[in-house]
């Protein structure tokens, strides 16, 4: 008996390691995905060590040094219309964008996974939950987020909530699809015949087997979340001044496009790079985890 358990455990570990290694190996073959990973790593490092990388606080104004161009002494990315250091603002903006991205994706995943599991597992709930999801689907994404913000009021926290609600139907649909196919597998039947509870089957047996599509979805969703946060802040519905949010920075710089274009271009490039990175890493993960898998 005891030997059997040991081998089972050993086998499990071996399998886990190899799945991870295998995925990484396949990821590293994909050049674009590697570039994406590098950009994301840089962003995380910037966000984590922001105070050590900058010599100015992001909201310290120097009214005598307004609108300095890129390459000025002491401000290599220049300053904005209040004389705030652009580099500091970009670095602290990286922190905001990663936190908002993670927060809204995590919230969306929690809601989406639970609803997806329930509707995939219980046929009776399926109709109800999926109709509610269809209702949410009937709004173009950013419109749904704007509607939620209109109700909750404008702030960065509400943007996180709005974007997570917008992620729920997408996530639920993907999880439900995976649950439907996983439900038919024999090991689930075996668990059921052993008398395992529904909850145990759902969370202990089905969920670990459908992590691949969820991870891919989450990565791709990060890109959407960051882009939407910037879009909403650009529209004045998200971060409020003096928060150094990239979208808000673009909106503030817009009036200075003709005289100080760096105020819009620099945060614009930052958004572009990060969104690009999460998209290619998501693509890479999808190919690496399961070449046959399809996401809608």
């Amino acid at each position: 008996m005891s030997t059997q358990t040991v081998t089972a455990k050993g086998l499990k570990n071996v399998e886990k390691d190899s799945v991870f290694k295998d995925t990484m190996k396949r990821m590293l073959k994909n050049k674009l995905a590697v570039i994406g990973l590098v950009i994301i790593t840089i962003q995380i490092l910037l966000a984590a060590f922001a105070p050590f990388l900058t010599s100015y606080a992001p909201d310290t104004q120097t009214l005598s040094a307004r609108e300095l161009p890129i390459g000025s002494e002491g401000h290599w990315l220049g300053t904005d219309n209040y004389g705030r250091d652009m580099w500091s603002r970009i670095v602290y903006g990286a922190r905001i964008s990663i936190l908002v991205g993670l927060g809204s994706v995590a919230l969306g995943l929690i809601g989406g996974v639970i609803l997806g599991l329930l509707s995939g597992y219980y046929k009776k709930l399926d109709a109800i939950i999926m109709r509610i999801m269809d209702l949410l689907f009937s709004f173009p994404g950013i419109l749904l987020a704007m509607l939620i913000i209109a109700i909750l009021g404008t702030s960065l926290v509400n943007v996180v909530i709005a974007i997570s609600i917008w992620s729920i139907p997408n996530c639920a649909r993907i999880v439900r699809g995976s649950v439907l196919s996983a439900k038919k597998e024999e090991y689930i039947l075996a668990q059921r015949s052993l008398g395992a509870s529904d909850r145990r089957i759902m969370f202990k047996h089905i969920l670990p087997n459908i992590t691949a599509p969820i991870i891919v979805f989450a990565t791709m969703r990060m890109a959407t979340a960051i882009l939407s946060t910037s879009a909403l802040s650009y529209l004045g519905l998200g971060a409020q001044p003096p928060t150094p949010e990239w979208g808000a920075m673009i909106a503030a710089g817009q009036d200075y496009m003709w005289t100080s274009p760096h105020m819009t271009i620099v945060p614009g490039i930052a958004i572009m790079l990060v969104v690009f990175a999460f998209n290619v890493v998501g693509d890479g993960l999808r190919d690496a985890l399961d070449p046959n898998m399809e996401l809608d």
Binding site: D59, T60, Q61, L63, Y82, P241, P242
Partner: peptide, 12 residues
């Protein structure tokens, strides 16, 4: 908004 941003920074 411009006045407020400047005043906020100077008051802090």
């Amino acid at each position: 908004i411009n006045m407020a941003e400047i005043a906020q920074a100077q008051l802090s």
